[in-house]
Design a protein around this nucleic acid. Structure first.
Lengths: 242, 242
DNA sequence: CGACAGGTTGACCGTTATCAAAGATCGTGG
DNA sequence: CCACGATCTTTGATAACGGTCAACCTGTCG
């Protein structure tokens, strides 16, 4: 509770509509929940979708906005975050091309509960709720793609909640690092996918603690910090036993 | 990480199949994701669903089980919980009649990540994944019902995660109490929907802390503990400013 | 009535947030 | 291309918050 701090976002109504038809087509064809369809069906989808671009740092939607569209990222990265009841920001996830957001928004007359900001030059494909409902009823295979995505996000969110509820910060950090090498596989070395400030927000801690714990893990010989953002895992098993 | 403690569940393969056709029909007709359909369609659904009963405390599924069914509660209550990487249990939610579970399970060849136990005499309606996929493609309106449910659970889960990440225990308890009166509306008094032990697990804390914080809230004049499980809210605004 | 799980209470201390200040890094505009 | 400011990161000192352990109490149910 206490004071609610609203970050100074750029006004979000001056985004640049991308009217190039080719660009829009490229955008739609990149969308995983649609691109299994036939050509004629894709054209139908093209008609109800719109492409919009956002500059780095620009706000896409914010909590309290009327939420009536599905947003699919076609280029760039988008940060989804929430403000808690006491006004603290928590990073929920980062969307990459192909990912979508819109949440509850999609099925209920409701408002957004989270914030979305472009982290870099980003272009987004939107579909209005009314149009989407039609598509879902007409092409059940789209529903199933969305269901798969939702259920895996639910899984992810519940796993994260359980970690917050039961693991201490050091363990949460260790688990995060371990998941980073999964993603970049092959090598034992990777670059942090976000700033340590954002990482702190994502892991429910503070930048100070992130910094200190990383040095503790390094002292213990589990990792090596090559540069600010580049980390090498020296002892994965040791790390996971932390 | 450390030791993984597996609770001593009763064996879960000796549940009692409920073969009464009337009972099964009653079960199916209670299911919100189906009951908007026509009579002939309901009969089709009856054919692919099965009713199963569980005794109090019996395990329905556990993490690691092959997960290939949708489970819909028709009577009783079911506790869904996870074990964290370090082996601590966290209560995720309690299912009531009409609620369903099965998660990712439904759309991917995968295993359960959570545990489900009957909290009392419970009967459950199940649908195999393969049958469900057929129903979803044939009746898109079912997909949409499931999507609505998933998106609202996702919302809920992310809200909970954000609370864990950003609020202190006292605030989480206060928010929980505030939501209890919403549910039982009208009155300023309600009964805790679970034991304080389970509540501690749900809120990511310990029974000791729950006990202490409740007395602190009482000392501060925000609430009154009438009995172990019965609480009256005296000052909701004060409580929420905690 | 007795046993057992659940609940309370107290003492203690480990973990992590906070505040402050200095140092590194990045992006921007001159 | 460099310099500047803003932002991110590190480091230290401090204290609050909440977990743990142990003991005792209490309600519930067979």
């Amino acid at each position: 509770m206490k004071e609610i701090e609203i970050k100074g976002h750029e006004d979000h109504h001056h985004h640049h509509h991308n009217h190039g038809a080719e660009a829009h087509e490229a955008c739609v064809s990149l969308v995983p929940i649609f691109n299994h369809l036939e050509k004629e069906q894709m054209e139908e989808i093209m008609e109800v979708t719109h492409s919009v671009s956002y500059r780095k740092g620009e706000n896409i939607y914010r909590a309290g906005d009327q939420s009536d569209s599905l947003y699919i990222v076609s280029e760039g990265r988008v940060k989804i975050y929430r403000l808690s009841e006491s006004g603290k920001e928590q990073l929920l996830r980062v969307l990459h091309p192909g990912d979508f957001t819109g949440e509850l928004a999609l099925f209920r007359e409701t408002i957004h509960e989270a914030y979305a900001d472009a982290m870099e030059e980003t272009s987004i494909c939107t579909v209005k709720r009314s149009d989407l409902q039609g598509l879902l009823l007409k092409y059940p295979s789209i529903s199933i793609k969305v269901l798969v995505e939702f259920s895996s996000r639910l899984e992810q969110s519940e796993k994260q909640a359980t970690r917050f509820a039961t693991e201490k910060v050091e363990t949460r950090i260790a688990l995060f690092l371990a998941e980073c090498i999964d993603a970049e596989s092959h090598s034992k070395e990777f670059v942090l996918p976000m700033s340590k400030k954002d990482l702190a927000s994502y892991l429910g801690t503070t930048p100070e603690t992130i910094s200190r714990k990383l040095f503790e893990l390094e002292d213990a010989g589990y990792i090596k910090q090559k540069t600010q953002k580049r980390i090498e895992i020296l002892d994965l098993d040791g790390l996971l036993l932390t």
